[in-house]
Amino acid sequence: MKALISVDMEGISGIVHSSETNPERYDYQRGRELMTAEANAVIAGVLDAEPTAEVLVADAHGTFRNLLPERLDRRARLVRGKPRALNMLAGLDGETDAALFVGYHVRAGEGPGVLAHTMNGEILDVRVTTRPPGDDVRGTGRAAGEAVRATVRSLGEIGLNAAMAGHHGVPVVLLSGDDAACAEASDLLPGTVTVPVKEALGMAAAVTLHPEEARDRLRRAAADAVTRRTEIPPLTLTGPLEVEVDLASPHTIDLAVLVPGITRARGARTVAFTAPDYGTAYRLVLLLAQLATIRPA
């Protein structure tokens, strides 16, 4: 059995402010320690249920160099640094049996949620439209005039990464974060075990569990989630996919339309593209997030 644990930082118990998640701020070291301890709790839970499991841990916050390697459970292997294929899911492949998301946060524009954002704060929304095979009534067996309904999903990091795991046939069996992140996961990923480690009061405030209590809950939940992995379906978005991305900066729009296949859409903040499959869509969204870091000369 192979498990990938993707660990973000904003949804860790005790963390409520960017000073605890930003390497340039005074409280970051404490944030790293809390993050590493929660990763260890989930590693322990996986191995409680599956003692011979192969466990990879993907550092999935910011620089991807936050987890303390010397303090990580030695039974797991750590994936750190960037850029890298699959971004927050580095290490995922077709041999992976389960993905576990630790310390995740709600998407931009939702909440109240602690440090809510999507990718890097420059992406305001990602909308993915899927359609059933055939977009009219011909050959569908439907009554004349009955429409085939498209499904539009607004995705943040939870949904974007869960769908990428699903693209590889891998279910997300566990997610931890604040109550808003857990609610987002429950709505999008039926069956996924959620562990709310704090109750969001706003962007930078929460009622939080004691870190040791959070770790105890995470360890038990991880063991349970891995045991039930075959009962939890992966999130599968079948192509072709229509994607719209709202971006904070008009400069990013100007850069984005230089990419073949990406066009301006409605308003001043939106670009659109069609992807043949979700893997392609995911990589293009990652590219847009990277373009958003470029500032005018």
Rank of each mutant, 00 (worst) to 15 (best):
K2E: 12
L4W: 01
D8N: 14
E10Q: 09
S13A: 15
V16D: 08
V16P: 00
S19C: 11
E20K: 08
E20H: 07
T21D: 08
P23Y: 03
P23H: 02
D27V: 01
Q29H: 10
N40Q: 13
G45I: 07
E50F: 12
E54V: 11
V57T: 11
D59H: 07
H61M: 06
H61R: 07
G62E: 10
T63K: 10
L68G: 02
V79L: 15
L92V: 06
D97S: 09
A99P: 05
V106D: 08
E110G: 14
E110C: 12
L115Q: 14
T118L: 00
M119N: 10
N120D: 09
D125V: 00
T129H: 02
T130W: 04
T130R: 14
R131N: 12
P133Q: 10
G141M: 07
A144D: 10
S154L: 14
S154C: 07
G156R: 02
L160G: 13
M164L: 15
P171Q: 09
V172Q: 03
G177V: 09
G177Y: 08
D178T: 11
A180R: 10
A183K: 08
A185Y: 01
S186Y: 00
V193T: 15
P196Q: 12
P196G: 09
V197S: 08
V197L: 08
E199D: 13
A200T: 05
L201T: 05
V207M: 03
E213G: 10
D216M: 10
R220S: 13
A221H: 05
V226I: 15
R228C: 07
T236Q: 13
T238M: 01
E242I: 03
E244W: 08
S249F: 06
H251Y: 13
I262R: 04
G267W: 07
V271R: 02
T274K: 13
Y278N: 11
L287K: 11
L291I: 03
P296K: 09
A297T: 12
A297L: 15
